[in-house]
């Protein structure tokens, strides 16, 4: 250790170097900690009122791919899309829209997707009707005019996939006893989440809203088999069609309640 003595200058310059390095590392770590916590909070947020453009990669994948250039916003002919500002719900700089303000018009030539340079809006989405920006849900069944027994039907009529994404189901009106309710029902198989129904809902606040898929949809147990689907798939019932259960009749030979003996 004491073989090669270092000069005081060497020692002090090494000291300085180590100190500088520690200082820089500390500073960067602190900034990184703040940024990481803030950024993670923003990335984890699932804002309900902000819809992503069609073809947007799901959740965090989108936040990793989108480079926040705003070319999709420029490409949108209806000024539907906007870039999130720091005070807004969506991650700063990313594109979003609010269906109640301006819904997606589902342009068949997909200008926003074609404008996206990064692939955050998936170029493989060639059929705009395959977009799944969210799912419309008739969320308020107490104030929906059709549920009240009126023929509003506006969400149904404004749906670009009328009779596919939204159907009207006729049901007896129990209240009046003589009329029919035409209840709008959304089908996830066809709904793109464009938000035209939410936009057109005549109520002060929309009874039908587009919400993120993960919020709108449940998930069946993976072991679960729906009988009629399995039947359609295999072409026949999986169990014998006429299941002959043994007839069990009450056995009258023994008394129903045994005689009580104290």
């Amino acid at each position: 250790m004491s073989e090669r003595r270092e000069s005081p200058e060497q020692a002090s310059s090494r000291r300085k170097f180590l100190l500088e390095t520690a200082r820089s590392a500390c500073g960067a770590a602190l900034v990184g900690l703040g940024l990481g916590l803030y950024g993670n909070r923003q990335a984890m947020a699932r804002p309900v009122y902000t819809m992503r453009p069609p073809g947007a990669l799901p959740g965090k994948k989108f936040l990793a791919a989108c480079i926040r250039c705003g070319q999709c916003v420029r490409a949108c002919p209806y000024q539907t899309l906007r870039l999130a500002r720091p005070e807004e719900e969506a991650a700063t700089g990313t594109p979003y829209f609010s269906a109640r303000q301006i819904p997606c018009e589902l342009c068949e030539n997909r200008p926003c997707i074609r404008a996206c340079p990064s692939g955050a809006l998936d170029p493989q989405l060639t059929d705009i009707y395959k977009a799944r920006m969210g799912l419309a849900v008739l969320i308020d069944r107490e104030n929906c005019l059709n549920f009240l027994g009126l023929r509003c039907d506006v969400c149904y009529r404004s749906c670009p996939l009328i009779d596919k994404a939204i159907t009207l189901n006729a049901l007896h009106n129990q209240r009046s006893g003589k009329h029919t309710l035409f209840l709008p029902e959304v089908h996830s198989k066809h709904c793109t989440g464009c938000g035209k129904c939410e936009k057109s809902c005549v109520l002060e606040k929309a009874a039908i809203k587009v919400v993120p898929l993960e919020l709108a949809q449940g998930e069946l147990g993976h072991h679960y088999r729906v009988g009629w689907e399995e039947k359609a798939k295999s072409g026949q019932s999986l169990i014998p069609e006429q299941l002959d259960l043994p007839d069990r009749m009450p056995d009258f030979t023994t008394p129903i309640t045994p005689e009580w003996k104290p």
Binding site: L35, Y38, G39, Q42, A43, K60, A64, C66, G93
Partner: peptide, 8 residues
């Protein structure tokens, strides 16, 4: 974080 946090 798996997200472009710096761009925030």
């Amino acid at each position: 974080t798996g997200s472009l946090v710096w761009e925030l």
